[in-house]
Design a protein around this nucleic acid. Sequence first.
DNA 1: GAAAGCGATATGACCGGTCGTCTCGAAATC
DNA 2: GATTTCGAGACGACCGGTCATATCGCTTTC
Lengths: 207, 207
Amino acid sequence: MRRPVILSFVMRKVAKQLTKEKLLDEGVALLMEHGYHGTGLQDILQRVGVPKGSFYNYFDSKEHYGAEAIRHYIEPFIEQLDAYLKRPDLSGSAALELYYRDQIAEVGRRDFKGGCLLGNLIGEIGDTSETCRIALKSALDRYRDMLAALIAKGQTEGTYRQDRSALEMADLLVNAWQGALLRMKIERSTAPLEQCCRTLLGEDFRA
Amino acid sequence: MRRPVILSFVMRKVAKQLTKEKLLDEGVALLMEHGYHGTGLQDILQRVGVPKGSFYNYFDSKEHYGAEAIRHYIEPFIEQLDAYLKRPDLSGSAALELYYRDQIAEVGRRDFKGGCLLGNLIGEIGDTSETCRIALKSALDRYRDMLAALIAKGQTEGTYRQDRSALEMADLLVNAWQGALLRMKIERSTAPLEQCCRTLLGEDFRA
DNA sequence: GAAAGCGATATGACCGGTCGTCTCGAAATC
DNA sequence: GATTTCGAGACGACCGGTCATATCGCTTTC
C-alpha cells in the first residue's frame, strides 16, 4: 500500500546504494551483538524495512554480505587514523593516545558490549569462510598499517623507541588491544583497555 | 534394540559421567571449529552416539552445556602449566618458552584452525550469555594466574624484570597471545605467535 | 499526449532443513 | 509395584535461499 514513486534511472541507482549502506550499517551492529551465525538475514532486513525476497538484489549471499560488512566496518577507523596522521599539530604519540582514549570512552558508552567486529568474526568464522577471511585480513592489515604509520611518526619525533620496527610495534599493539577487548567483555570494565594503553603506549614503546 | 545390561547404581553413574565427558570432548572440538551458534546439538550428540532426546538428561540447556565445555576445555592447560610450575629443574622462563613452543607446534598441526576456545567464545557470546561469561572469566583468570605464577618464578630467579608486577605482565601476555591467535587464523601462519613470544618473553619481560 | 509493450527490478510466499526444547511412554532399577 | 532414568519423536520457530509473479521506468507506436 505504498505510495508509488517515480524515480529516474540514476535516482534509483542512488537509492539502491543508500539502502545497501543502511543494510550494512544495521548489519554491522547486529553482527557485533550476536555474531555471524547468531544474526539472521530477517533481523537485518526488517530493521531497514527491506523485504525478505529483496536481499539477493543487494548481495550474492550471506557470506558475501559478511565480507562487505567487514569492509564497511573498518572504513571509519581508517579515516579517523588517517585524519590524525595528517594533522601537523598532532604528534604521533599524542594522536595514538587521543585515538585510544576515544575508543575506550566509546566501548564504555556501549556498556562493554560488542568489542571489535574484526576480532569477533575472526574467532567465529576466520577459519571456515575463505571469503570473509580475506576481507578480515585485508581490513586488519590496513588498520595495522595506519597504526604503524603513527608509530613511525612518533619514532622520527623521538618519542618512541627506534630499536624496533614500527610495524612490529603496531603488530604487538593490535594484538594486545584485541586481547584487551576480549578481557573487557568478560570483566565488564575498561580497565584491561586502559592497562594495555598505559603499558605499551606509555612505557614499552617510549624511547 | 540394544541388549539389556544390568548395571549397578554406581556403575551407571560412572558410565553417565563418562558419556558426559565424551559429549564435552566432542563439543569442545566442534565449538572451536564452528563457534557457539554454528554448532548444533545434533552434531555433538551423533558424534558420541547419544540420542537427541537424551541431551537433557546430561545438561540443563545448550547454554549450560557451553559453560561446562568452557570449564572442560581449560583444565588441561591449567594442569600442564601447574606441572611445569612444580618442576624444580625447570626455570620459570624456560617453562614458559617450552609451553608456548608446544602450543605453536600444536596449532600448526591443526592447520591454524580453531585457535583458543576462550577467545572465540568471548567474542561471540561473551556479552550475550551471562552464564557463559562467568565461566569464561573464571577460566581465563585461572589461566592468567598460572602464567603469573611462572612469571613470578622467573622474577625471583632474576631472569625477568622486577619493576612490574607478574600479574600485569601475565595480563599483557594473555592479551597479546589472544590477539596473535586471531592473526594466525587469518594469516594462516604461526608467525604472529612466534613474534609475540619473541617480543614479550624474549625481550620486554627480560630483566 | 495516450496506450501498449518491454526488459529490469522488486517482492512475498514458500522451499527443504535444522534449530533448541519438550512430552510421554518404555525400560531399568530398587 | 514404585521410582527413576532414558529416548523416540515431535514441537513451533527460524534458517539461508529460491522463484513465479507483480510492478516499475522507459520506449515505441499510434
